[in-house]
């Protein structure tokens, strides 16, 4: 296996020209989205951004971009680059949207794509409260207007020892948290998925204590890597990927990145997640990607990148040590797994 490049090479040094051209097209696409957004005549004025004004928006593009402010899930997939900052290629759009763990829609990898096909995610609101100065209920489309999505190409490492590279669209979780003004005694963030066994058939199974709950420490949540994602590959999320809004914390195992969020609370104590309750000896609160802490079933020392044969070594913090290792300075990561 090839050794990983370390330290990181800036992406400008490894991005081929064709990708730059692609990126320009992509920016144009985003600009069209922004144009549609302006035309939608929103109540909340969008915050000033550096998004360029659209030169000439074609009517077709506007029509597809208008309803959800991002192109619909079945629009053509686009990404600004073909690889992450380590030079690893993006996972195919097909794999990223058909090979999913989302037990609310079944336990098989292909169940979510099949069973969530008709899952309606609009309208959708996220209730943000708990120990905050300005609690509120936010429509997802308002969030997208207020915090224009940016693309983040992240590695996704599942605790089951497979991994992907995904171009997410989202905004830093910190922006939303700052907007609701966390109180001084808020130390953790608790996230909750929709509980609706009628629409999420997997929740009728008694194996787990629904709804899905996940948590982050407040300083983890404020880290710039943590985003609330509303899309991938340049368009809205499919339900199987956690539509309409989900967490992405790429230095943690995938199950931390809770999907289809309806509730975010700031709390004083670490929340117990669904997985911690199901198997406390297997899943801890932190669940940082760590090749040195084994799991009884799956390797954590190596992983399979979907689309590749064989295995590659798992990187500490999934390759994001530079950005997040400081959060855990002085902590025993063997004990706090």
């Amino acid at each position: 296996m090839a050794r990983r490049r370390w330290p990181l090479i800036p992406s400008s040094e490894i991005t081929p020209e064709s990708v730059y051209l692609n990126r320009r097209q992509f920016m144009k696409g985003l600009a069209l989205g922004a144009g549609a957004l302006a035309l939608a005549g929103c109540a909340t004025p969008p915050e000033p951004t550096s998004t360029p004004t659209p030169a000439a928006a074609t009517p077709v593009a506007q029509a597809t971009a208008a309803p959800g402010l991002l192109p619909p899930p079945d629009a053509a997939p686009v990404a600004s680059a073909q690889a992450d900052e380590l030079g690893d290629a993006l996972t195919s759009h097909e794999a990223a949207t058909t090979y999913n763990n989302f037990y609310e829609f079944g336990m098989g990898k292909d169940d979510p794509a099949r069973n969530a096909k008709d899952f309606v995610t609009s309208p959708w609101t996220v209730q943000v409260g708990g120990l905050v100065g300005k609690p509120g209920t936010f429509g997802v489309e308002d969030l997208i207007r207020q915090f224009p999505p940016e693309e983040r190409i992240y590695r996704l490492r599942c605790v089951e020892a497979w991994s992907m590279v995904i171009p997410w669209l989202g905004f830093p979780l910190a922006k939303l948290l700052q907007a609701v003004e966390p109180a001084s005694d808020a130390k953790y963030v608790r996230f909750e998925t929709l509980l609706d066994p009628q629409r999420m058939p997997g929740q009728r199974s008694g194996w787990y204590d629904w709804p899905y709950v996940e948590g982050l420490r407040l300083d983890e949540a404020m880290n710039d890597l943590a985003i609330l994602s509303v899309g991938l590959y340049g368009k809205m999320l499919y339900p199987q990927n956690g539509a309409p809004i989900r967490l992405v914390a790429p230095w943690k195992y995938g199950f931390k990145s809770i999907k289809s969020i309806v509730k975010i609370d700031l709390v004083a104590e670490p929340p117990a997640s669904l997985w911690m309750k199901a198997a406390p000896n297997e899943y801890g609160f932190y669940a940082n990607v760590n090749p040195d802490v084994p799991h009884p079933r799956w390797s954590q020392a190596t992983e399979r990148r979907i689309g590749e044969g064989g295995r590659r070594e798992t990187l500490p913090f999934n390759g994001y040590a530079e950005q997040v290792a400081g959060l855990y300075a002085g902590m025993d990561l063997q004990a706090n797994y």
Partner: peptide
């Protein structure tokens, strides 16, 4: 062969703690 490409170092790192 397929999963570990006969990489004994990887296999050992992974099986050493896997009772299954």
């Amino acid at each position: 062969g397929l999963d570990y490409a006969f990489n004994l170092r990887f296999i050992w790192a992974d099986v050493a703690n896997k009772r299954f």
